[in-house]
Structure formats: C-alpha cells, structure tokens
C-alpha cells in the first residue's frame, strides 16, 4: 500500500473512499459530535484531498530540488512541440523529465522519449484533467535526485485543469496565435491561475489577423501579474527569453 495516500496499486488513477485519510479539514471536529438534531456541520473544502496530496508532491519536489511546471492549454496549441524544442535546447545544461497527460494514446510520450528525456505517460481515460494523486505516483517513478526540471504536460483543456493543484511551482499556459486573441477572456479561470503565458506559433502571425497587443492586454486584465513570452517553437524565435526564465529558477 502507498504510504503517502493509502492507495493500493489497483487504485491508481481513480478516487478511493478508503476512509482512513487524515484530511486537513480546517474545521473543528467537535462540531461533528455536537450536531444539532440530524444536521452535521462539515465545512470541508471539496478539493482538500487533492490539495493535501499536492502539498505532499510539493514537499517531495522541494526536498529533491526539482523545479516543476504544469503546462496547460487547449488541444493543438503546440505544447508538445514546444516541449521537444525546449528539452533539446536545454539538454546540455539541465536534467529534465516529463509527465505526459492525455486521455488516450502514448503518442506524445513517444515524441518526448525520442529527445532522450525520461518520460511517463498518464492516460486519464474519460478524465479531463490530471490530479495530484496521479502526478505523485508518476513522479515517484523518476530518479528525482538526478532531475532538475520536471514538466507536466496536462490534458489539452482550457477549463478543468485550472482547479487542480498538482504540487507544481507554476502553471504555464500555452496559447497559440491560431486560436484567437480573446482566449484569456473566454477562459479566464485558466489565465488567472497561470503565472506564465507562452504565446506560441508567432511565426504564423504574418498570415493571420491576430492582434498581439490586444491579446496580451486581455491576459493582463485577467491576471495583472502574468509573465508573458512570445515564442515560436518551430523557428526558435523568442525561446531564449523563456530559457532565461527557466535558468533563473532551476536549482535556485
């Protein structure tokens, strides 16, 4: 049985009501015993279990000095291409690893493995997001003492992954210029939750009506503190600034 969350191997990737979790309820337990009539006061955060497991992941990453990023975007924004390029360009200086999240297939994991970086695929099946439980177990399979930077490529979805803390240092939202400049306003939860935005596929701008200034203004409206890099994973334009940001944080 897993000593962190109490799951057995067959429990992986699903919720298990095993009843022996010690949740951080943030409430007075006496209120349960002192229930008036048939009412029981609970006041428990529904995401408490995920948040507790995420805190455990965060401790594990801190102890092993691994810098962890949770990459989120809609499907087709170029997350995997951006990762391939980043992993190749940083291979001399940084020991990276990748957790790939997709509903089905290991296509992305195969692409990442081709760069020579250790990779672990999580298939969520019907699930629309990764959670801290899945990520904790996937991360345990790496030799974390010899990894500086862990990328978690979340399921392509601009909605659900915003609610689930995985224990990462930062959420990084990838938006491609083919998606339309108003995505930050249409999906404000994700852009609010992210600390960094990568505006990708900028090499296509000459062919589009995409207004970069307008897009960045919308992102900053939803999240005034967001750090933004304009990049093209295909041509490499702008990638140096992104690498600079990473280098300042890895093993720091």
């Amino acid at each position: 049985m897993c000593t962190t969350c109490g799951c057995s191997p067959e429990d992986l990737h699903h919720d298990h009501g095993d009843g022996h979790h010690h949740h951080d309820h943030g409430h007075d337990h006496e209120s349960i015993g002192a229930a008036v009539g048939k009412k029981i006061s609970i006041e428990t955060d529904i995401l408490a279990r995920n948040n507790r497991l995420a805190a455990g992941n965060r401790e594990m990453f801190a102890a092993r000095k691994v810098f962890v990023l949770n990459l989120v975007s809609s499907p087709g924004s170029g997350k995997t291409t951006l990762l391939e390029k980043t992993l190749k360009d940083l291979s001399a200086s940084t020991r990276s690893a990748v957790i790939e999240g997709d509903q089905q297939t290991d296509n992305d994991a195969v692409r990442i493995a081709a760069t020579g970086v250790p990779v672990k695929q999580i298939n969520t099946g019907a699930g629309c997001h990764l959670d801290a439980h899945m990520v904790g177990h996937a991360a345990e399979e790496f030799d974390l003492d010899n990894i500086d930077l862990l990328f978690i490529e979340n399921v392509g979805n601009l909605v659900c992954p915003s609610s689930f803390d995985l224990g990462e240092h930062h959420k990084v939202v990838v938006l491609s210029v083919t998606e339309g400049e108003d995505k930050p306003l249409k999906y404000p939860h994700m852009f609010h939750a992210a600390d960094v935005m990568l505006l990708n596929k900028t090499d296509l701008l000459p062919h589009l009506d995409f207004d970069v200034a307008k897009c960045l203004a919308m992102a900053r409206r939803v999240n005034p503190g967001i750090t933004i890099f304009e990049v093209s994973a295909r041509t490499g334009a702008g990638m140096a600034d992104w690498y600079g940001w990473l280098a300042e944080r890895v093993r720091s």
Binding site: G17, H21, R49
Partner: peptide
C-alpha cells in the same frame, strides 16, 4: 471535472 468534484463530495460525506 464536476465528476471528480462530486466523487470527492460523496467521499467527504461518507466519512462524516
């Protein structure tokens, strides 16, 4: 994601 949220609700209720 409401599905996993609801599963957590059921888990919390059954525990209490």
């Amino acid at each position: 994601h409401e599905l996993s949220i609801t599963q957590s609700v059921v888990e919390i209720c059954e525990q209490n």
